[in-house]
Structures are given as C-alpha cells and as structure tokens.
Design a protein around this nucleic acid. Structure first.
Lengths: 203, 203
DNA sequence: AGCCAATGTAGTCATTGACAACAAAGTAGA
DNA sequence: TCTACTTTGTTGTCAATGACTACATTGGCT
C-alpha cells in the first residue's frame, strides 16, 4: 500500500466539501468533527488546524452556501424579461435553491441567526433583499407598482419567499406543488404591490 | 435537611416545563437530558422513564408549543371584527407568538419537519392553515376577495406569515419593526387576493 | 545546512445519550 | 395483612463526541 503523504494538501477544502455532503445527508446534528476527519482519512485533531471549533466549520459552510445562492439570485435578476417576470424569476431562483439544498438552507439561516455570527456572514446573507428592493424601486418609478416604502415592501417580499423556501425545502406544502406555491406567492405579492394599500385601510 | 421523597410525583411535567425554559434560553442544542435531570433534582436516568429518548422529549415540547399557538390563533380568528381585520389579527397572533417564543418556534417546526414525526404532531401543526383557508373561502363568498383556489391561497398566506414569524423571531427584519412588517405583509396579501391575478399574467 | 512556521498525529479529559441492573414506593387481590 | 406486580427513580457503565495539549513531520526560507 502506498503510504499517505503526511500533509493532506487541501484539507480545508476537503473538510468543507465533505461537511456539506454530510449536512445534506444527515443535517447539522449528524455532523461530527471526528467522523469528518475519518471520512477524509485524517486524524481526529487535524480539523482544528483549519477550523477553531465546530461552529467555525459550520460558519464556513453557511457562508459558502450564501455565496452560491446569491449567484443564482443575481443571475435571475439580470436575465432580461420585463419587471414582473424578473420578480417571479428571483422567487423561483430562491426557492429552487432551497429545494435543492434543504439542509444547507437551514444551516445558513440558523447560523446567520446565531448571536455571534460574523459581519461577513450577515452581510452576505442580506444580499438577496437588496436585489428585491432595487427591483421594487425601479418598478415604482416605472409606474408599474403603486407607491410605498420600498424598504418595507422588499422585506415583505423577502419574508414571504423565505417562508416559501423553507417550507418547500422541508416538503411541507401539503398537496400543493412547489411551482404552484411560488407562482401564487409572487403573483399575489405583485398584485398587492400594484394595487397598493388604500390609506383608509391602513388605519 | 428534609429528605426528598423517592418519587418526584410530577416528573414528566417538571421535565417538560424546564425543557421549554432551557430551550428558550439556550436553544435545543443547549438541551441536555443529564443537565435537565440535575435541574429538577433527579438522577440522570430518571427522564428515560417518561421520554424514551431525547427526541421524544423534544417532540413533546413541540406538541405543547403548537397547542399553545393554535389557541392564540383561534382566539384571534374569532374575535369579531370584519374579515380583513380578523385576517390581520391572525397574522399578528402568529407572529407575536413567534417573537415571544423564538427558540420554541424553531423547535416546533424542525421537529414537525423531522422525517418520522408523529401524526399527532403534524396534524396539530397544520391546524393554523385551516383557519386561514376557512377565512379566505368566507371572504370569497362575501365577494370581498377575488376568485381563486382557496387551498393555494391559504398556503400562500401561511408561508408568507411563517417567513415573517421566523425572521421576526430571530430579529432579522433589519431596520423594520415587527409591527410594520406584519401589517405590510397582511395588507399586501389581502390587496393581492382582493385584486386577483389577471389571467393574462398567469401565462 | 539549519531554522521555523504550518500542518498533522496521538493521547487525554469532561460531558453526553443510551442502556442495564437494582431499589423503592404504590396498588390490587387473596 | 401478606404478597405479587407495576411504576418510578437510582446507580453504574459504555461508546462517542468536542476540545485541549504535547509532540512529530513537512517544506520553505535564509
């Protein structure tokens, strides 16, 4: 048998990749540093040289997840249909990512929610909402959407799609297909923003 | 010192209550059966007599959480304003519960999402959406809302409010207040359902 | 060659969840 | 009352885990 080289060479990347796989297969609770070390044929103490502790590894996984997701959302936002079509596209991109990587999405947000998450993680995780706000502002200026605070409306769209994504990822849309719910959600939101909320109803 | 009685008497309830407290303070990952046993002054093996394993305890916590939440939603749905006001009320009740018990809400849904969750837990957890569907059907019959599959629309409302609740609970609404986001979300959804989605846009 | 930081190994510790054997307390029937 | 029987709790044990420490190997640098 050929002796393994003392140095792995790409241990950090190997750990990250394997950690993502494990998370997709067994969730975060199924992630063990020692098992991870075994999986990549390295001693149980080696991962500590690359990740201070287990949380640091999870943070890195979450960050990589957000970066990957942001790319998908950016692509959807720029693929040039009319405004409404692009809005629906963003929603689909977000939810599709969630359905493809359900456990990763959970990790991404629970990590971002963690009290001492890094600034980098939080800003990367907040990127998606900026795309939505820009689009809403643009649509308002074009007269397609009614007036209203773009900041709040963007947040409304984000939370709604976030809920859709989480439940779709978990397969908890009961009888409804993911496609139907995403379409219905984006359609309803867009129709609501187009109609606006009469002042009389705001009281 | 007065000797403790051999039998605790209400160990199950004490464990459940303390488990909820611990979860609110430290999340599920901060929950330990042994520490829990210490907290209620009982040996580390005692909890096993009431909960087969840790997951069984968490399941019980989640179920209690859903029952408590459903009561709040029911109350809001029945407090008799006009339809739109009741709709907003349901949303507020849901989100308020989430903000008051953020960690519990996470446990509730991650447990419900768990592959082998009990039928009881899943049906109890799905109760909220039935309330929403009934209200939408009623509003459609009254001509307040446009036509559309009530099942899908109820799901849209549920996922949107669910997202709002989760993010509000985690304090991730950025600059926006919980109150503002809930109101804006329910208003936008209601306006969207009232306007309906033109067939031309559905293509 | 010789130094040195980076990377990995090996050993240890407290904690945890789960399990098994045993003890104590309540219960029901003779 | 005596006696099984069940429920509830105790104690001891096991393997696995995350974190830490001391040490070994490697390759780059002067």
């Amino acid at each position: 048998m050929t002796a393994q080289p003392y140095h792995h060479g790409k241990l950090r990347e190997a750990l990250l990749e394997r950690a993502m796989e494990t998370i997709e297969e067994a969730g975060v609770e199924g992630l063990s540093l020692r098992q991870l070390a075994r999986d990549v044929n390295v001693s149980h103490g080696a991962p500590a040289k690359h990740f201070r502790d287990k949380q640091a590894l999870i943070d890195a996984v979450a960050l990589a997840g957000f970066e990957s997701m942001n790319r998908r959302i950016q692509d959807a936002a720029q693929s040039g249909h009319e405004l409404r079509g692009r809005f629906v596209g963003i929603g689909k991109a977000y939810v599709d990512f969630a359905v493809e990587h359900p456990a990763l999405l959970t990790v991404m947000y629970s990590t971002k929610h963690h009290p001492d998450s890094s600034d980098e993680l939080r800003s990367t995780g907040a990127q998606g909402i900026h795309v939505a706000r820009a689009m809403i502002t643009e649509a308002q200026e074009a007269g397609v959407l009614a007036a209203g605070d773009p900041e709040t409306l963007a947040m409304v769209c984000f939370v709604s799609l976030h809920g859709t994504a989480l439940l779709a990822a978990g397969g908890h849309l009961d009888g409804n297909s993911v496609e139907d719910v995403v379409t219905a959600t984006t359609d309803t939101l867009w129709a609501g923003m187009a109609a606006g909320v009469p002042a009389a109803q705001q009281s």
